[in-house]
Design a protein around this nucleic acid. Structure first.
Length: 213
DNA sequence: TGCCAGGCCCTCTTTAGGGCCTT
């Protein structure tokens, strides 16, 4: 399968709430590396921040306060996952959410959060406008993506998002006769005019047989 | 089952409002 050799990291956070600004903290993170059209590696860990997990979140994610008591410290986990990802560009489903926790948790350990995020939810709105909705579970069913475990656990959701990303790359390459669909093109497409994606592809400068340096 | 926030998108819009999506 002709795909870009670049490595993209797909991440997913489980958290105690919806926004760091309201005191929410990460409880689990997973990162899945995608390269050459397939998943090649992954990192996943619970993380102990001292934040309390509400009954609602425990039911949603299956992550309990007791589970976090024996988890490694959040700072250690963030250093490890940052090293695992390196300088790879990032992808997440509804990336605004994961980006907010990525930046907040890294800032707590004095790390710069400079990574570029592409968003499979925004891309789905462009590529699959007829989908009933753009939730991760709906898109996984629509594309018959392989099951990856319990939904709302970080590694399972990151794996599904990675499979969705690979599906999107294949669809973009097929639809526009491209040899690859690199992260930079996805970043352009996710903000392109819905009714003129082809023009966005053309502006990006990709042609069959060409590659981005 | 859903509230919290915030970025994005659409439209009965743009001097705005409401829905989507994430936990």
């Amino acid at each position: 399968m002709p795909t870009t050799p670049e490595t993209i990291a797909v991440i997913d956070f489980e958290t105690t709430g919806l926004a760091p600004a309201t005191g929410a903290r990460a409880t689990e993170i997973a990162a899945v590396l995608v390269s050459g059209g397939q998943i090649v590696d992954h990192y996943a860990s619970l993380m102990r921040s001292g934040a309390w997990v509400s009954p609602f979140i425990e039911r949603l994610t299956g992550i309990s306060n007791a589970m976090l008591e024996s988890a490694p410290p959040a700072g250690q986990v963030m250093r490890e996952v940052a090293a695992f990802i390196g300088s790879s560009p990032l992808v997440a489903h509804n990336a605004a959410f994961d980006r907010s926790f990525w930046c907040a948790e890294l800032q707590r350990v004095g790390r710069d959060a400079h990574h570029r995020f592409a968003c499979t939810m925004l891309l789905s709105r462009r590529l699959y406008p007829d989908s009933a909705n753009h939730r991760l579970g709906t898109l996984a069913a629509l594309h018959r993506l392989p099951a990856s475990g319990r939904a709302h656990r970080a590694l399972a959701d990151a794996r599904v998002t990675a499979q969705l990303l690979l599906q999107m790359q294949r669809d973009v390459m097929s639809r526009y006769a491209l040899p690859q669909a690199p992260h930079a093109l996805l970043m352009s497409l996710q903000r392109a005019a819905r009714d003129n994606l082809a023009a966005c592809v053309a502006r990006h400068g990709l042609r069959e047989g060409e590659s981005i340096a």
